[in-house]
Design a binder for these strands. Structure first.
Lengths: 348, 348
DNA sequence: GTTAGCACTCACGAGCGGTGAGTGCTAACA
DNA sequence: TGTTAGCACTCACCGCTCGTGAGTGCTAAC
């Protein structure tokens, strides 16, 4: 695999990304002035095919890059590190002066990514280690019911309405809140249920109330919060010829619809800046001719979120990587900026 | 338009809804035993076409019902009122023992409707008159910031983090909360901002804090909360032959993507039980060959929500109407059941 | 090692006739 | 007067053939 072969391969990939049509030897020698005749290119292409970098849909058509070729291409791209983009300013502009509620930001980010890349964009909210309780507060919301509000160090607030005895008024609920805060501060949600059970003795006058509180924490322990998954640009997928097949679109669309599954697919595992899964690499049948590119961002509390793009294998990787890079940075800044008030979200 | 014509028309509609293919005279006389020969049916069909109830894609094809025909059909259906369905039990089963958070319910309802009808389902959360404030509570969430929690009579809770002076601790925030609650109870969010401004005098020690509180209410006045719109079964649309055209699908899909617009389209205005908009009746170009059927449900607080189904004009109207009817009832029950603890939602 | 030339392949689209579902019309029938 | 049988006609659809052209692989010359 010499230098010249690589340059030819790159040209083929570039052309294919642009046109989605098999590219022939003449195209390369003409459009990308290699100083080589089509015949020479042809020989090289033949070699590249043997090496597994090119596929031929049929004898008399041009070549298309294989997954292996994209892999090489992307690896090279990542290695070279030249992903500096000039759209940092425009990304920043998109967020300037905007409401800063978590879900809004997430949704908006998905929109922006999709608009800048013209692919399907997915944004997962931050999630990380067990958040620790900071404050617990009970607020009366009506006769016989109170709202449980839990503030954690990652700024996440869980709220649910639970039943409570009628005789507990605003002030007594406050007293209980203070006591609860004292006991639970610094502990995880998981531990909270047990601790409350232990408290039953002291606050004997409202044993049943505490029981339902304990239940509440119990319920929230394993019930991993159904995270809001932001998606943008679904309809953009339909513009690409590779998705002119209804069956494919249907598969993809129903996958995108089941947000849990989508989140699981996009969620990034390692600690790397970028993940690129090309075609069959993802192991997801519906995605066999899609590529998935993801990046991470992080919040001040150390939580990690994921942003991702799903598109055809002949994706404009460099563009996508640069957009994701910029956006990841922007989100990290937005969620991590010290001295700012934290972004809070009510979980469901 | 005599009885026989109507029966023939109905048969044509039924058949077309089933097959999506132009239906011929022979089909009618054979499959639906009318006791008439195809020739007679043919004459009647010719009449029906003249009356505007049937269209002919081309000379040598069968007839398809026009929007006018569907209109007649649906009106008759609604009038007859025989929409009693036997899936009340199954709808109920879907909700038994389920988490009862507003957004969960909404999402789930969309899923269920879509599964039962095989069309695209949309569910809008309840919204109605200006909710009145019941309780205001400030909770410290970190150094220099506090969470504002507003409980309203419609069970809606608004929460946002605002900056607050560092010297205000848990107890003093509570004191302020009590005072705020006293002043604001029974007022609308809109009025709150003004009232708080008036309070500045009394709580002079924290004028700046109150100012930001006032800002908070101001911000929430007109910023109509971006409601969570639940959608289910988008991919189901692709199974119908009328959406084999990519362009159509794209239009529809991008409409569904912009939730605001979708909500505006689906949102029901009047106070009627059902709304049926057939094809061009909706006035939305992308929807020219879709029908939109909506129904309402209501909460204890008197708010109204909308559930809707979007499908091809040759929709199984009776099925859809019955499912929507049952679901509307179920949701009303769920949100309105007296003696239960209210469903709360955190707005964004 | 590179290039020109040439025979060969094969997807794609246009053109074409056969097929069949469905119609409208007419004439006969109750 | 309404219903029905019969028949000629229309036209979308399907499968077929064939020409076209992009692209290849191979060979021979530079």
């Amino acid at each position: 695999m010499d230098e010249r072969k690589y340059r030819i391969l790159q040209a083929i990939i570039d052309d294919y990304i642009l046109t989605a049509e098999p590219v022939g030897s003449r195209t390369i020698s003409r459009k990308y002035d290699m100083g080589l005749s089509s015949a020479t290119i042809r020989n090289e292409m033949s070699d590249l095919e043997e090496l597994g970098y090119l596929d031929q849909p049929h004898v008399s058509a041009g070549r298309i890059p294989s997954a292996k070729a994209y892999r090489l291409y992307v690896d090279q791209l990542l290695e070279s590190g030249q992903l500096k983009s000039d759209d940092e300013a425009s990304v920043r502009a998109y967020f300037a002066g905007r409401a800063r509620q978590m879900e809004d930001v997430i949704d908006h980010a998905a929109q922006v990514i999709s608009n800048m890349t013209n692919y399907l964009a997915v944004v997962l909210p931050p999630s990380g280690r067990q958040p620790l309780i900071r404050t617990v507060q009970l607020v009366p919301v009506g006769p016989g019911s109170a709202l449980v509000l839990v503030v954690t160090d990652s700024g996440i607030i869980r709220d649910t309405v639970i039943p409570c005895p009628g005789q507990l008024d605003h002030d007594s609920l406050y007293a209980i809140s203070r006591q609860l805060t004292e006991e639970l501060e610094g502990h995880s949600i998981e531990e909270a249920a047990a601790i409350i059970s232990g408290m039953t003795g002291r606050l004997h006058e409202s044993a049943r109330f505490l029981a339902s509180l304990s239940d509440y924490f119990d319920a929230h322990t394993d019930a991993k919060p159904r995270r809001h998954v932001a998606v943008g640009g679904t309809s953009k997928m339909l513009t690409y010829p590779e998705y002119s097949d209804m069956e494919k679109v249907r598969g993809l669309l129903s996958l995108v619809e089941t947000r849990d599954r989508l989140a699981a697919i996009v969620a990034q595992h390692g600690d790397v800046a970028f993940t690129v899964r090309i075609g069959p690499e993802s192991g997801i049948p519906e995605m066999s001719d899609c590529s998935i590119v993801t990046a991470t961002y992080s919040t001040r509390a150390g939580e990690q979120g994921t942003i991702g793009v799903i598109g055809p294998t002949r994706m404009r990787y460099s563009r996508v990587l640069s957009v994701l890079g910029t956006m990841g940075q922007q989100l990290s800044e937005l969620f991590g900026a010290a001295g700012e008030f934290p972004e809070e979200e009510s979980e469901r």
